[in-house]
Amino acid sequence: MKKFVKCESPGQFLAYLYGELNGAALNAFEDHLSDCTTCIDEFAEIADLRYSVYEWRKVEFDPLETPVFSIEAIETPPSWSEQFQAWFGQHTQWLSAASAFGAVVIVLTIGILFYSAGDTADLAAVDDPSLPAVIVTPERASGTPVGGLIEDEAEEAKPSASAFDERRNLQQPKTSARKTPSRQPASPAVTVSFRSVPRLNEFEDIQDDGLRLADMFDDIGSSE
C-alpha cells in the first residue's frame, strides 16, 4: 500500500478503471501511468480482477432474459352477489322458480300496501269536519263480561256505567264543540259500540262516585 502513497491512490485507479476520471485528473493519471511501472502492475492486477467479475457477469447473467414483472391482481374471494349469480347461472330452473316467487311476493306486497292505503284513507276521513262526530259509548248493559271481568263484577258495574254514560253525554256537546267548532250542532251523533273499541285498562268500568271539580264547573255552567 505504500506505493499508492507515492503514486496514485486506489480511488484514482478505480475511477480510471470504471471511466469516471475526467479532465485534468485523467490526463495526469495517464501521464503518471505511462511512466510508473509499479502503478502499471498494480493497475493491471486490479483490471484483471475486475475483468474476472465482469466475465462472470457476462457469461452467467447476461444471457439470462430480463424477467418481465407483471403485477397480477390478487384473487379475492367472490362476493356473495357474485356467488349468487354464479349459482343461478348454473341452475337456471331455480332462477325461474325464484323469479316466479319474487313476482308473487311483489304482487302480494303491492296488494297489502294498496289495502293499507285504503284503511289510512278511512282514518284520515275521520277528521273531515263534514262527517258526523263519533261518540264512543260504553255498552255495559248487555251483562257480558268485559275485559275479563266476572259476571258479578259486571252486574255491580251497571249503575256506574249508566252514571258514566250520563256524564259523558253531558260532556260530549262541549267536547265536540271544542274540537270541531265549525261543526253543525244538527249533525246526527253516531253511537259506536263501546265493546268494539280496544280497551287498554278497565278503570273506566269501575264505578267512580267521587266529586270531580270539572263536574262541579260543568254543573255551574249548565245552571247558568
Binding site: Y16, L17, G19, F43, A44, A47, D48, R50, Y51, S52
Partner: peptide, 13 residues
Amino acid sequence: DRKIFALCFGMLG
C-alpha cells in the same frame, strides 16, 4: 493473453 486483454479492457472499456 487474458491478463493483457483484461488490462486493455480496464483502460478502454
